[in-house]
Nucleic acid binder design. Structure first.
Lengths: 118, 118
DNA sequence: TGGTCATATGCCCGTCAAGTCATATAACGG
DNA sequence: CCGTTATATGACTTGACGGGCATATGACCA
C-alpha cells in the first residue's frame, strides 16, 4: 500500500550499521564528512548519503565551516526510541547483570535458532 | 559482501513496524498467536513469521499450552538497544520536555527535508 | 581564472526482506 | 477416526535500500 514518502521511522534509520557507527562517532564530538570518512574507512559518497538520511530524519544537523560541513547529533529521534523502550524496562531493571551474560554468549553465538524444536 | 546468515542485529529486528506492535502488545502481557492476530488485525501467517524472527533473535520465547503457543518477552535484545543509547543520553537528560515538543511537531510534519538548502 | 579540495547527487544494479497464498503439521472434541 | 482449530512453513512476487561509480557543485588558493 502507498505510504508517506521517505518518512521512515527512526527505528528503520538506525537499523543500518554504518549509520549507527556514524552516530556513535558523533556522540563523542562533532565531525566533518572527511573525518568520518577516514575514521570509519568508508567511501565518501556512502558517508554523504547516510548523512543525508540521518539529517532528513532529524538525527543530525550540519554547520557550514569553510568548505567543510560539520555534523552533530540532534537528540530528538533518539529520545523517541528511548521512550519506546520505556514499557519494557520493567523486564530487567532488577537483575542488572543479565545483559553482561547475554553479551558474553553472543560472542561466538553465530549459531542456531532459539526455542523448542518443531 | 557475504554476511552471516540471518544474524540480523536487534536494531534491524525492531525496524519492522508490525514487530514493534507485537512487542508492545507482549509488553503488557503474554499472548497467544491468535490473540495477537486479532488485536493487530493482521494475517496469521504474517504474525507467525514475525514471531519466528523475533524468537530467533531472542526477543520472545514461547510456551506450549494445548494447541496454542503463548509468547512472552525476553529482555536481553532490548537491553542491548538500551545500552547502545546510553552514550547519547547526555544530549537530553537535562531538558526533558524537548521530546514532547518534538513529538508535537511530528504530528503534521509529513513535510519537507530538514537542513539548509543546497 | 584555473586547479584542487570537500561534499553532494544521480543512476544502475544486486540483494534481501515482507506480503500473499497455499499447504503442512499437530492437537483437540466428538 | 474425522473435522476443526491453532500454528508453522514453503514458494513466489514485489519493492526498497545500500553500494559503486561517475559526475555535479562550490569554496578555497595561487
Amino acid at each position: 500500500m502507498g505510504h508517506i514518502r521517505g518518512v521512515e521511522s527512526s527505528f528503520a534509520i538506525i537499523a543500518e550499521p554504518n549509520r549507527r557507527a556514524i552516530l556513535s562517532l558523533l556522540a563523542s564530538s562533532e565531525q566533518s564528512v572527511g573525518e568520518i570518512e577516514r575514521q570509519l574507512r568508508m567511501p565518501q559518497t556512502s558517508v554523504s548519503k547516510h548523512l543525508r538520511v540521518l539529517r532528513e530524519a532529524g538525527f543530525v544537523e550540519s554547520r557550514v565551516e569553510a568548505q567543510r560541513r560539520v555534523y552533530r547529533i540532534r537528540p530528538e529521534p533518539l529520545m523517541e526510541i528511548d521512550a519506546w523502550l520505556a514499557p519494557f524496562r520493567r523486564f530487567w531493571e532488577a537483575h542488572v547483570d543479565a545483559l553482561e551474560r547475554h553479551l558474553d554468549r553472543m560472542e561466538q553465538a553465530a549459531g542456531k535458532g532459539t526455542d523448542e524444536k518443531p
